[in-house]
């Protein structure tokens, strides 16, 4: 145990006659841990007139695979009762039980918004509301990285990414979850053209960076597939299946591709 050595033997000496009672700081109390990590990764990229949210479908606990099909990407505000189709998508990765609870809350709120105001909630409003929900549990957070996607008021692809306590930002692309650190640098390079320069434009500071422009849908879909097939190779918690929800002005399209099950 870490605390086997008395602090007096190895630690600093004190000028008091009796050293401060260390017992209270040495007691380690085990208790119930209300969180776990169910692994997996999610990713969102926007284009000029679409937004894609994707996630693998593996659910893990430790080295076990719970299931090969547990979606992490959800339509928000879809209503069988009124026939209202969704126009917002949400992905959650981290602690799956919190993810589900968060999804259900946001879903109910977006539906209630429509019943009360007679119009669908804008992605911008929904994004702010999601932040408020997350911050509402600031001291017992939803242990998830959420990404919200849709189309903004101008019909352009919109993507918002969150930390577990509601800090958020609109972005062009974002990877979250277990393989975020593997996928995000790839996205920086391939979507925002980071570290890409125009050949022969100059030397040193004069070297001109390649300007980021929105990518066409087919290219983005392929980027998503490449990002996940690569992540599957290097991260054990990612795999089994790739689920993509594509938001366009025509609605939400769902695409499923198999990933390696190893």
């Amino acid at each position: 145990m870490l605390n086997a050595n008395s602090p007096l033997a190895s630690g600093p000496s004190y000028s008091f006659a009796t050293p401060p009672n260390q017992t209270s700081t040495n007691i380690k109390q085990h208790s119930f841990n209300p969180y776990t990590d169910n692994g997996g990764s999610t990713l969102g990229i926007t284009g000029d007139d679409f937004a894609i949210l994707a996630g693998d479908t593996r659910s893990t606990s430790g080295y076990n695979i719970n299931t090969r099909y547990a979606p992490k990407v959800f339509k928000i505000g879809e209503d069988d009762g009124t026939g209202e189709s969704a126009h917002i998508v949400l992905s959650v990765v981290g602690f799956a039980a919190d993810g589900n609870a968060l999804k259900e809350r946001l879903n109910a709120i977006v539906k209630m918004y429509r019943y009360q105001h007679g119009k669908p909630m804008s992605v911008k409003a929904c994004a702010q509301r999601l932040s408020t929900i997350l911050y509402g549990k600031r001291f017992f957070p939803y242990y998830v990285h959420a990404i919200l996607g849709g189309l903004d008021e101008e019909g352009k692809g919109a993507l918002y990414s969150y930390d577990p306590v509601g800090s958020y930002e609109r972005e062009q692309c974002r990877a979250a979850g277990a393989a975020a650190s593997l996928i995000m640098p790839f996205l920086d390079n391939q979507v925002n053209f980071k570290n890409q320069y125009i050949p022969g434009s100059g030397e040193g500071h004069a070297l001109e960076a390649r300007k980021a422009t929105p990518l066409p849908r087919a290219e983005v879909e392929q980027l998503v597939r490449d990002a996940f097939t690569s992540a599957v190779e290097r991260h054990i918690e990612v795999g089994d299946g790739l689920q993509m929800l594509v938001v366009t002005k025509n609605g939400i399209e769902e695409i499923y591709d198999p990933l390696k099950k190893d």
């Binding site: 776990t36 547990a70 602690f95 799956a96 039980a97 589900n100």
Partner: peptide, 22 residues
């Protein structure tokens, strides 16, 4: 489908809890 003490849920054609999961 399964649910555990944390409220985590998942569903699969085959499921096993505890030692059976291994």
């Amino acid at each position: 489908s399964s649910v555990d003490l944390l409220g985590t849920t998942f569903s699969s054609p085959t499921l096993a809890t505890g030692f059976g999961a291994h």
